[in-house]
């Protein structure tokens, strides 16, 4: 069976029906939010996070968040404020061959700018190599980092995060029992 409730990965149908995905026309104009929130849950911080009112939760709080691509400036405020980490930014206009993806990241260690890392898709499988463009920790994010990576354009629809980096023992603030 497919679909987020069976696999943890939104299915193609769920994504097609999802009101949080920007149109291809809007994507051609530059950086924009992609909200892959496909299940009706009582949640709405994304709508409140957007300073441009580009995200709405029409009616009941369980409705799916709807993106108005024309209002979205790609500012990224919603990315780290979504507790579901369901929002990324895509930028098709980033380069000739490359597009950029911004995604929230809450693991340690962090990659550094310029590093080459493995870009992964919704199911955690490695899709391609990616270059880390920036690692930011905006004030409003309360600890959640937003990482921007550059990837070949043909992977832009599917890249969602990076493979977790191995921990170095000496960096380990934790002890085992």
């Amino acid at each position: 069976m497919t679909g987020i409730a069976y696999t943890g990965v939104p299915s193609a149908e769920e994504l097609r029906a999802c009101p949080g995905i920007p149109t291809p026309e809007r994507r051609k104009k530059g950086r924009v939010a992609v909200i892959e929130c496909v299940q009706e849950i009582p949640c709405n911080p994304c709508a409140a996070a957007c300073p441009f009112h580009a995200i709405s939760i029409p009616g009941e709080i369980t409705a799916l968040p709807r993106l108005d691509g024309e209002l979205c400036t790609g500012c990224g405020r919603c990315v780290a404020l979504c507790p579901g980490l369901a929002i990324t930014l895509v930028d098709e206009t980033y380069g000739e061959e490359e597009g950029a993806v911004d995604f929230p990241y809450e693991f340690l260690p962090l990659p550094a700018e310029g590093d080459t890392v493995d870009a992964v898709g919704r199911d955690g499988r490695t899709l391609c190599a990616a270059r880390v463009v920036s690692v930011r920790r905006p004030e409003a994010n309360d600890g959640t980092r937003v990482i921007r990576i550059a990837v070949p354009k043909r992977f832009l629809d599917d890249v969602k995060s990076i493979r977790r980096l191995a921990r170095k023992e000496e960096e380990d603030a934790w002890t085992t029992k």
């Binding site: 069976m1 409730a5 943890g8 496909v38 299940q39 849950i41 995060s161």
Partner: peptide, 28 residues
């Protein structure tokens, strides 16, 4: 810092919110 090697569920579907499951799937 731990690795989660499996989430095991008796039902035929994931009980919690899809967005939480998706975080784990993306992380492998």
């Amino acid at each position: 810092g731990a690795d989660v090697v499996a989430v095991v569920e008796g039902a035929d579907h994931i009980g919690g919110y899809g967005v939480h499951a998706a975080k784990l799937r993306r992380a492998g």
